[in-house]
Design a protein around this nucleic acid. Structure first.
Length: 894
RNA sequence: GGGCGCGUAGCUCAGUUGGCGAGAGCGCUGCCCUUACAAGGCAGAGGCCCCUGGUUCGAGUCCAGGCGCGCCCACCA
């Protein structure tokens, strides 16, 4: 990137982001603008990027998430903070393993065919092949992340940290191993955490099954179930202790059909006498409640499943090896044949599904590792209550609290091969369990050489929950850790509030003694135009890279930021990319063209700073005052994470005020060679407004602002990225200029409206007569008379002239009468109609205003300034109405 | 069964402590290819602010209830 662009003359006539975005990005990279300096001593601003799946490809959700982060990072960097945005990727245990297993399946193989070592190697190969893709894609949308600090959850550093944490929590008694009911995904053949199960309402059936009573064969009990096949694992039937109807059954046994086992009838408080028959089949190995009942009554646990969901050897031979759903059918069929199926009812209930493959999960007893969560949750709750962590939008705080208050222990072992191996060894000689930071070569207890590592790996989230400090080198005490922990803002989607956000807060407090970030900004979901989530399977996604290719990264970013209500979802139409992104694209185009006009005027002349107010024209004072206003607005909005407000604010300023009004008003001065002094003033204001606007826009549209800013004279740095954030200048605040301009704007709009109503030819100029008691309009016209007349095609404008002949009249808010003689064009009937319409609207407002002021309550109870305002308003409305009515009357006379 | 969010112009949405003559973009109508921009300019049309009550001098904004959508959590077979 040449540091000295020939100011503006070289701007291509059309906005073509493809021609400069990649080049600009490369230059930024080369100059190291994205790298944070851990030794700078400046106040830091840190964002840790939610690490995408290492093999993922960029989708619009990432586009949104990372654009938000980049806006915040770029803004803080310009504010002079040591801004650091740490990128990384996640090994995503189940998801990644699934992908590779699917590849193997296509070759007709399974992971067991390869064996553990070869399989893991194969996954690594796949990761190395596709791994960096998503991060590269992030560069295309302008992400200014600190790439040199990129981390992967399986890197040596984070891996060491995972082990350290496991050992510490184990030594503290917060990690334990045990046989419990867990959620089992038969397709992934692994246990899942509760949070990894998605519940879905399903139209199922309730089967009423008869179990004959032992020694009373003609009688039977009836139990209801939604999963008939689990009967093969029943080890009791339960009733409520106070249920008199079934009292007599207590102590008896029933014969479990098909399995042909005798099982006892027991009493347990859990049973709801009102539901079903009041009798419950108890399957301790396959239902969380039954598991508890089983423990209380010391019942055997019969695991009827193999890991893949087929029936195990603990069921009668004819069912063995059947898939669970086939087994359901088979069981129901046999029961029916034997007359043991009393009835079937339809039944809506919710069923858990695996969040990675959407297979129905099966509750199943197995030996797993768990983290005791209560002791970790307490400080995390306390931190929130003290205000150490804040959520945007705030209501997520309640969800966070609710989850933490009811948190259950976290199952962290996974029966997978891809991930962090559990750092536990078992000694075959003495049976010791060794939990170690370093791999052992013999048993610590007995010195035995036959030791075996636990075959399982850890939940992916067991590495991500440490991300805010493992990315900074923990457990080593690095300079990064000292300078950049705790961080500041976490930007993510609400769906991982429990998986990730809450757990990071817990681990931060546990291992660092401080919350990892102060603000959690939870943004909405990107949806298609029908309101559906974007997903691969629906094929309704939009590829951000495609959008960049078509319209540029700035258009993509601005559209996303502009359309994103706080916490609200964002709708985009995958069938109409242009329609979806036109806002950003058109805006970038507008900016480009305004620069194409303005820059040449700044070229080749010395352009100084903005002179003092006395030397400025009204339009200058007005635009500078508006600029101050938008500057405060943008900064304030960014501070409150109201990004769309900031984006919309600068959008309106630049387009509707700067382009539509200021540029038009300033043109005559820029072209007038006879008055170099006025021209110089105009140039200086033009330069200043462009400079500041580009800076305000830079976080949202980094590329175009750089491209144009570099062409400004007197720029303070070699890149807009190094320019300071904009601060308002109090001396530019100018209420008089704002009100005079707004009267002038109203006048010009009124004249243009008349022209339009009466189809005055475009080239034809007209005469305007103004009658006004107020001086403001006179002053405004005095100051900006020439350019103003040009804007509305006004030949001559006079004050207090006699309005005669056929013409059109409009009364302004200030009470000023605008009269445009239009001999030959005027249509009396139409003009009457026009005035009547004005009068009716005014009449309506006058009445409303009168009603309000007629209320004693209002006058007495409303604040004085509100009442005063209302009185002034009414007076002004009456004046306007009177003038319109007068005019209307004179028309009748003529 | 709990909890949360949303319902404002044909469409997508703004509207922060209650004081509006309710806004934007797209779409629509009319005029304009006025040398920065037709990816544009100017002018316009278009709203029981979901419904019903309540609080208040005053409600799109606060409260209660209802209707309709969406999401999260939950071990009732």
């Amino acid at each position: 990137m040449e540091t000295d662009k020939a100011k503006g003359m070289d701007l291509p006539p059309r906005y073509a982001p493809q021609s400069f975005e990649a080049k600009t990005y490369a230059a930024w990279m080369e100059r190291g603008y994205f790298s944070a300096d851990e030794h700078s001593g400046r106040e830091s601003y840190v964002i840790i990027m939610p690490p995408p799946n290492v093999t993922a490809e960029l989708h619009m959700g990432h586009g949104l998430n990372d654009t938000i982060q980049d806006v915040l990072i770029r803004w803080r960097r310009m504010q002079g903070r040591e801004a650091m945005w740490v990128p990384g990727t996640d090994h995503a245990g189940i998801a990644t393993q699934n992908v590779v297993e699917r590849q193997l399946a296509a070759e007709g193989k399974t992971r067991w065919d390869l064996g553990r070592e070869a399989f893991v190697e194969r996954v690594w190969a796949w990761v190395h092949e596709t791994g960096g893709t998503i991060l590269e894609q992030l560069k295309a949308i302008g992400s200014s992340a600190d790439w040199a600090r990129t981390c992967f959850t399986l890197d040596p550093g984070p891996s060491k940290a995972v082990r350290e944490v496991f050992v510490r929590l184990y030594d503290k008694g917060l990690i334990y191993r045990g046989n419990y009911i867990v959620n089992w995904c038969p397709r992934c053949a692994t246990a899942l955490a509760n949070e990894e199960v998605e519940h879905e309402e399903v139209e199922g059936a309730l089967y009423y099954q008869r179990y004959p009573i032992v020694a009373d064969e003609s009688n039977y009990v009836v139990v209801a179930t939604t999963r008939p096949e689990t009967m093969l694992g029943d080890t009791a039937v339960a009733i409520h202790p106070q249920d008199h109807r079934h009292r007599g059954l207590l102590g008896k046994k029933v014969l479990l059909p098909l399995a042909e086992r005798e099982i006892p009838v027991i009493a347990d408080e859990f049973v709801d006498p009102e539901f079903g028959t009041g009798l419950v089949k108890v399957t301790p190995a396959h239902d969380p409640n039954d598991f508890e009942i089983g423990l209380r009554h010391d019942l055997p646990q019969v695991d009827i499943f193999n890991p893949d969901g087929t029936l195990s050897d603990s069921v009668p031979e004819r069912f063995r090896g059947m898939d669970r759903f086939a087994a359901r059918k088979a069981v129901v069929k046999e029961l029916k044949e034997r007359g043991l199926l009393e009835k079937t009812e339809t039944h809506r209930h919710s069923v858990g599904h695996c969040y990675r493959c959407h297979t129905m999960v099966e509750p199943r007893v197995s030996e797993q590792w768990f983290v005791r969560m209560k002791p970790l949750a307490e400080p995390a709750l306390e931190a929130y209550r003290k205000g150490d962590v804040r959520f945007t939008p705030e209501h997520w705080g309640g969800v966070y609290v609710n989850w933490l208050e009811n948190v259950r222990d976290w199952c962290i072992s996974r029966q997978l091969w891809w991930g962090h191996r559990i750092p536990v060894w078992y000694c075959k000689s003495c049976g010791a369990t060794l939990v170690l930071r370093e791999d052992p070569d013999k048993c610590r207890e007995c010195g035995g050489l036959e030791i075996e590592q636990d075959p399982d790996v850890l939940d992916t989230w067991f590495s991500s929950w440490l991300w805010p400090f493992t990315t900074l080198g923990w457990p080593d005490q690095t300079d990064d850790l000292k300078s950049f922990y705790p961080g500041h803002t976490l930007v993510t989607a609400p769906e991982i509030l429990f998986f990730w956000v809450a757990r990071m807060i817990m681990s931060g407090l546990e291992f660092m003694g401080e919350v990892p970030f102060r603000d959690v900004y939870l943004h909405g979901t990107v949806r298609d135009h029908k309101g559906r989530r974007m997903s691969k399977s629906l094929g309704n996604g939009i590829d951000p890279i495609e959008v960049v290719r078509l319209f540029g990264a700035d258009a993509l970013r601005f559209t996303l930021m502009n359309g994103l209500g706080i916490g609200a979802d964002l709708q985009l139409n995958y069938e109409d990319l242009e329609g979806s992104f036109h806002v950003g694209r058109n805006y970038a185009n507008k900016i480009w063209n305004s620069a194409r006009f303005a820059l040449p005027h700044l070229d080749g002349h010395p352009v100084g700073g903005v002179p003092e107010a006395e030397r400025l024209e009204l339009s200058d004072r007005w635009i500078l005052s508006r600029l101050n206003r938008v500057t405060r607005e943008v900064t304030d909005s960014l501070e409150r994470y109201r990004l769309h407000e900031a984006a919309t604010g600068i959008y309106r300023f630049f387009w509707s005020e700067f382009c539509d009004w200021y540029l038009e008003l300033v043109k005559p001065r820029l072209y007038d060679e006879s008055n170099p002094e006025a021209r110089e003033v105009a140039r200086s204001v033009l330069r200043e407004v462009l400079d500041r606007s580009f800076r305000l826009l830079h976080p949202f549209m980094p590329f175009i602002t750089e491209e144009l800013w570099l062409r400004l004279p007197n720029r303070e740095a070699e890149s807009i990225m190094l320019a300071a954030w904009v601060e308002p200048r109090a001396e530019w605040d100018d209420a008089d200029a704002e009100s005079e301009m707004s009267i002038l704007q109203e006048l010009l709009s009124a004249v243009r409206n008349i022209r339009s109503e009466y189809n005055v030819e475009h080239g034809r100029t007209i005469t305007v007569q103004v009658r006004s008691a107020d001086d403001a309009l006179r002053r405004a016209l005095g100051a900006e008379g020439e350019p103003a007349r040009k804007l509305a095609g006004i030949e001559s404008l006079s004050f207090d002239g006699e309005a005669h002949g056929a013409g059109a009249t409009t009364v302004l808010t200030s009470g000023a009468e605008v009269y445009v003689p239009l001999e030959g064009l005027i249509d009396l009937a139409r003009e009457r109609e026009r005035l009547e319409k004005q009068a009716m609207e005014l009449q309506r407002l006058v009445e409303r205003s009168e009603r309000r002021l007629a209320s004693v309550d209002f006058v007495q109870k409303a604040p004085a300034h509100v009442v005063q305002q209302a009185r002034e308003k009414l007076e002004s409305l009456r004046e306007q109405l009177e003038k319109v009515t007068d005019k209307r009357r004179t028309l009748d006379v003529e």
